[in-house]
Amino acid sequence: MQGTVGAGAVMAAGSGLLSSPTLADGHGGGMAAAFEAENLDDALAALGGQAATESDQIKIKAPEIAENGAVVPVTVSTDIEGATEIAILVPENPAPMAAGFKLAANSVATASTRLKMGKTSDVIALVKAGDAVHMAKKEVKVTIGGCGG
């Protein structure tokens, strides 16, 4: 994971450059550290998610079998009141932390993107609401990995 340390710095420094309003002090911190973690425990620790409770109010929409691990569409949505952050992790990837979304007051608690997955793995969604962290997971079977070369 060359470059991730630098990326963290860029992220922190860059938040000021994006002229649009940003969440106060919401940058870097837990999420930046989570991106540097190379195993799930470290990533969860950085996000404060070790003690996360499993919740059926989090929905992960992802294919059961992904033919192409380079493009796995994942949508996470939640009904949990006051959700402020959504994080998506892929434990079997070299760096489990895949994407983090910080929601604003008027956001609807849903986010989707497409992820690379090296091999069959759970997809873990963490949702932070207030001081509590909730999680849900779903297994995605990958037939062709997304980390070739």
Binding site: T4, M11, T22, L23, G26, H27, M31, A32, F35, A70, V71, V72, V90, N93, A95, M97, A98, A99, G100, F101, K102, L103, A104, S107, A111, T113, R114, L115, K116, M117, G146
Partner: peptide, 10 residues
Amino acid sequence: LNANWGPAVS
């Protein structure tokens, strides 16, 4: 929305 991504995004 403010998203932080890692290289695992496609």
